[in-house]
Design a protein around this nucleic acid. Structure first.
Lengths: 187, 187
DNA sequence: AACGTTCTTGACCGCTCGGTCAAGTTTTGC
DNA sequence: GCAAAACTTGACCGAGCGGTCAAGAACGTT
């Protein structure tokens, strides 16, 4: 499955045939259809796995942190780190978003991720550490920054995940105007 | 071409066959290959067109504005508006980013967009209206917020482009901490 | 040893795809 | 009025696809 994910990410889902995958793995085609009912099923399972793993990583990262801001920051950092270590998924998720039939399966995962984040944003607004605003919109804005910076600099530019995470956190906290980055994970 | 773009966006590039397109247009297949040398060429031309049009729209939007902040804000607003009116391109660009052979063509366009934005960010940092930081990273962060919010709320959620643009501008300017939105397009 | 189950093979099938082309129609320039 | 150029048609082609399946290997149970 990891091999298939890599091939899909490198060559694209449609141009990569089932024959390519089984040949690369040096197995027969039958074994593929023994474990997966179709090529589409394989992609869905890869996506499900990835989303689950990312979520677990984030949950671990924020465990024990007790301010909303610290949780949000840790989540951002862990996301970027995870994306750097699981580059295939970025391309795969992006592809899946372009075909109607995969979107429902993507949404199920991303809705959960947004819901998690929204909770912390709400907490932050409630305790005054974040400015007022629609928590759902704010959460999506954070995801937008995080994913785009990770894609651009870590995956394409090959830069260090930590450096990029610093920039993402700074921007999310202070925006263009900039506010001194007071809160830290260690807070 | 607009028809083809719509079909590609709705059904995906690969699943949409040349036959689908020419049938929908009620022309023969020959006419397709008279105007385009291949299916791939068609996609590239659609992408080129879209990028050019977006850039033109942005250039028009910021004409006459004389502070960097006002220009950035106008650019963000115009982007979201344009994406709302050209939904097909969002999906198409997203798809093109998932296949190696299209990436160089995408980069050519997006590099230009980033360069434009970087210029204004640099100006803003120089005159003190923006916090210090790597202009390239900041520009990408802005693009990340803008594109993600547009995708999520305008294209998927069907919300009003203006409302979403307001949120995007607020977040970019103030971040999570929030700063009063002082600068406006009319400045 | 003998049997049923699990797992593996790769030739094969029906189908659809991107792309071609001989043939025909319309438009243009003179 | 006519020939050359621009355009249009759709049947057709070879290739490659996702998926099937008859055949058998490996393995556990008795």
């Amino acid at each position: 499955m990891e091999y298939a994910a890599r091939r899909f990410a490198e060559g694209g889902y449609h141009p990569t045939s089932v024959a390519d995958i089984v040949d690369g793995l040096q197995v027969g085609k039958g074994v593929f259809y023994w474990y997966f009912s179709s090529k589409e099923e394989l992609l869905l399972e890869i996506l499900r796995d990835g989303q689950l793993d990312l979520r677990r990583a984030q949950r671990d990262a924020i465990a024990g942190l007790d301010t909303p801001l610290a949780r949000i920051e840790a989540g951002i950092r862990r996301s970027i780190e995870w994306l750097a270590n699981n580059r295939q998924y970025v391309t795969l998720i992006q592809f899946a978003a372009t075909e109607e039939r995969f979107i429902p399966h993507l949404r199920r995962g991303s809705d959960v991720a947004v819901a998690d984040l929204v909770k912390h944003v709400k907490d932050g607004i409630a305790d005054g550490s974040l400015a007022d605003g629609d928590p759902v919109v704010i959460s999506h804005a954070i995801l937008g920054v995080t994913n785009h910076l990770a894609r651009t600099f870590v995956l394409q530019g090959g830069e260090d995940a930590r450096t990029v995470a610093d920039a993402a956190v700074d921007f999310c906290l202070g925006g263009l105007r900039g506010a001194p980055a007071a809160a830290s994970v260690t807070a």
